[in-house]
Computed example of a mutant assay.
Amino acid sequence: MASDVLAKPRMRGLLSRRLRIHIVGAFIVSLGVANLYKVGVAEPRKKAYADFYRNYDSMKDFEEMKKASIFQSVK
């Protein structure tokens, strides 16, 4: 009968052990999400801006806006 008794759970330090595990897990997940954001959003956005400004002619754009009479102070 005495061998059928369950062992007492170890309660001392339980919170600190669980927090340590969850903090490490949260850190790893946050690094993964940051890496995915960099690869999936930031790099393509930088490439799109670089491609746009590689052939951008601001004077041509200004003249087109001037012809469309967007500006009130320029004739």
Rank of each mutant, 00 (worst) to 15 (best):
E43N: 04
A48I: 01
M59E: 04
V24H: 11
V33I: 15
K75Q: 12
K67N: 14
D51S: 01
P9I: 02
F62R: 06
K67H: 10
A68Y: 05
R17Q: 15
Y37L: 14
V24M: 11
V41W: 01
L36K: 07
P44Y: 01
Q72Y: 07
L15W: 11
D51C: 01
R10P: 03
K38N: 12
G32R: 05
M1S: 08
M59V: 08
V74N: 02
K47Y: 01
V39D: 04
Q72S: 09
I23A: 10
F62T: 05
R18C: 14
V29S: 11
R45P: 00
I70F: 07
M65I: 00
M65V: 04
E43S: 03
K8P: 00
K67G: 04
K60T: 08
S16H: 12
K8C: 10
G13N: 08
R17K: 15
S73W: 03
D61N: 09
E43I: 04
H22P: 02
S69F: 09
D4W: 03
Y56I: 00
M65D: 05
V24A: 14
P44N: 01
F71E: 02
A26C: 11
A48K: 02
K46C: 01
F27K: 11
M1P: 00
Y49G: 00
R10K: 15
M59C: 06
V5M: 07
V29P: 02
L19E: 14
V41M: 08
K46D: 05
L14M: 13
A2M: 08
L6A: 15
E63P: 01
E64F: 03
V29K: 12
L14E: 12
